[in-house]
């Protein structure tokens, strides 16, 4: 589904290189965890995959379902099934969450040449998905992420994911700022979306999220490249030994 080859990324207005020869292959149905110390390039990878401005790809390629992902605008990527759950979801005053979800879903459907959802069908879909994530109807009436607590923001991201049903989900530090109960709700939401035709990249600093979302593969990112890959036991190993050895190895 996704193949990243020798990816090099620098900041657009600075000479700082963030991703430095990254290779990664993710197949449908798989869950990959990417772990690494602060500053290793985890968030940059998520932004490059979703098409945020401010980054420049100097070398390498990202192929998604056989197409050049990097050539697509963010909205085109989304319509083709790429979804980023933001580490810091953006607050958008004046745009009601419900309206936002509806415009987003129907924009994607339109771009794919599918039939748009009627308002009653859409409402049913959202209410059903929201209930599973303990999201109140009142929250859906509020402007996107405005006045939401940290936990509410993360749950709202997972709700968007559940409504938009993407093929490739990138979760950027979805566990940050969550207490253990909130993390369980979020992880349940993510697990319910696991399916043979959906892939997930779970970016996290800590191992604890991976107790709930069990990955097929774990990669260690350091200085912008993957320095070690393994199965879920690698995450536990990192938890006990820390990132120190990888930081030195790459330096």
């Amino acid at each position: 589904m996704l193949e990243i080859k020798n990816l090099h990324v620098k900041l657009a207005d600075e000479d700082r290189v963030i991703i430095n020869g990254l290779n990664l292959k993710v197949e449908a149905g798989e869950v990959h965890a990417i772990m690494g110390p602060n500053g290793s390039g985890k968030s940059t990878l998520s932004y490059v995959l979703s098409g945020r401005e401010g980054y420049e790809v100097t070398e390498g390629s990202v192929t998604y379902k056989g197409e050049d992902l990097l050539a697509m605008e963010p909205d085109v990527r989304a319509a083709k099934g790429v979804f980023l759950a933001f580490q810091y979801p953006i607050e958008i005053p004046g745009v009601a969450t419900m309206q936002f979800l509806k415009v987003a879903l129907n924009s994607q459907k339109k771009a794919r040449g599918e039939k748009e959802l009627s308002t009653p069908d859409f409402m049913r879909l959202v209410k059903e998905r929201a209930a599973r994530l303990n999201i109140s109807p009142d929250m859906l009436k509020r402007p996107v992420n405005v006045g939401f607590s940290g936990g509410e923001k993360k749950r709202a991201e997972i709700l968007q994911m559940a409504v938009l049903e993407p093929a490739l989900c990138v979760l950027d530090e979805t566990d940050s700022g969550l207490d253990i109960d909130a993390m369980r709700v979020v992880a349940d939401g993510v697990n319910s979306l696991r399916s043979p035709d959906r892939a997930m990249i779970v970016i996290t600093h800590y191992q604890r999220l991976l107790d709930y979302i069990i990955p097929d593969q774990v990669h260690v990112l350091s200085h912008g490249r993957i320095v070690k890959s393994g199965d879920k036991s690698l995450a536990l190993e990192l938890e006990s030994r820390g990132y120190a050895e990888f930081a030195e190895e790459a330096a």
Partner: peptide
Amino acid sequence: DHLFYLMSRGISASD
């Protein structure tokens, strides 16, 4: 940032 967030959910730039 607002624009990017909306676009990352599939909404076109002009919408």
